Simulated scan of single mutants.
Amino acid sequence: MLYVATAVFFLALALGVTSLITPRAALLCRNKTRLKGLVSWLAVALVAFGVIACLAPKPPTPTAEAPAAPAVVAEAPAAPAQEKAETGTVPAEPVVTGHPLPVRVVENTSYERLGRLYVELTLLPAGDQATATQADLTATVMAAAIQAAKENRAQVVTVTLICQQAVNSFGEVQLGYAVYIPDGKGVGGKSPSPVWQMLDAAPRGFTPDELEYLRLWAELRSSYQTPDGLTDDARLRAAIAKRMGIKEGSLHPYLYVRQPVQPVRVEGTLEVRK
């Protein structure tokens, strides 16, 4: 019955529209006019719509909703052992051990800024560095920074470990570099732990021949400048090899530049020699 009522409804609408075009579609009227045809078929459509409304299935009565299943929340992964601050590294338990080299102090300066004490140290190895590993060089600048912070009650300590003293920086390649902030302030806000804002070390220490090569490069470099202000590296390398009596290209100390490293476990104490 519902389907019949629906068919009558749409048929009545179609004939009503047709009545506007031709009065001959006003089949239910004795005197056929366009208006009478439209009105009569609309009346039939209304009756059919009422029948449809009565016969249409009723929606199910709403029942109490079942309690929603508890949301499954993925557990956050455990924090890594090495947390990163905005521009520094909060030291976790190191997994590599390094032994500090004995050092001499080249420069020791301090100053205050915004109520915080800054200490800057420049050190060099006091003995043989040829067997020093990257972990040993890291341990050296770490031990020096921690010791300086305690002795001076400094808030920021910068330590630079150079390979030797020379006439200029070309012969004083850096073996290690550290910026240590004991209270963690100024690095991504206030950290609950001391922070190594920077921590770099060379892959290893230099041999005596490599130190001599660097010293000669610093001394002779000014004699091998081109008119455009550049260094004639090829001629300079040849001159150094001849002076040292070695094969040209057999030494490449400038390849061993410092690079970012992780904190190490410092084993032993830092010996500062006069």
Rank of each mutant, 00 (worst) to 15 (best):
A144D: 03
L137R: 02
E120F: 10
V103A: 13
K36N: 14
A149N: 04
G186E: 04
A48E: 08
N168I: 09
A14H: 04
L15H: 07
K36M: 11
R258N: 09
E75C: 07
R215F: 10
A234N: 04
Q82C: 07
C163L: 06
S223G: 09
T97A: 15
G189D: 00
A7C: 02
K84L: 15
L42I: 14
A201T: 05
A79L: 15
S191A: 14
V156I: 14
A132T: 05
P182C: 08
E112R: 13
L161H: 04
A154W: 13
T87C: 10
T33P: 01
A239Q: 03
P203Q: 05
V8T: 07
T22K: 09
V159P: 13
T207L: 08
A234S: 08
K84P: 05
P192Q: 09
V103P: 13
V261M: 11
A14L: 14
S223N: 15
T158D: 13
P253M: 10
F9H: 11
R204L: 12
P77I: 00
S19W: 01
V44N: 05
F49R: 10
A71D: 12
Y177M: 04
E75V: 15
P59I: 03
L121W: 06
P100F: 12
Q147Y: 00
D200I: 00
E248R: 00
L27C: 00
Q225I: 15
P60K: 14
K190G: 08
L11H: 02
K84A: 15
A14D: 02
V159D: 09
Y118K: 09
E93N: 12
V90Y: 06
A144N: 06
G186D: 03
K247Y: 00
L101Q: 07
T231W: 02
W196Y: 15
K242T: 03
A135R: 02
L220H: 07
A74Y: 06
L11G: 01
G189F: 01
D233W: 10
K185N: 11
A76G: 04
Q134A: 12
V264K: 07
G229A: 05
P260C: 07
A126Q: 03
Q82A: 12
G88C: 11
P60E: 15
A5N: 03
A130C: 04
L124V: 05
H252N: 11
L251F: 00
E75F: 07
Y3P: 02
D128V: 03
P227N: 08
R221F: 06
P125C: 03
M198D: 11
A139K: 02
T158Y: 12
K150M: 10
L114Y: 07
T231I: 15
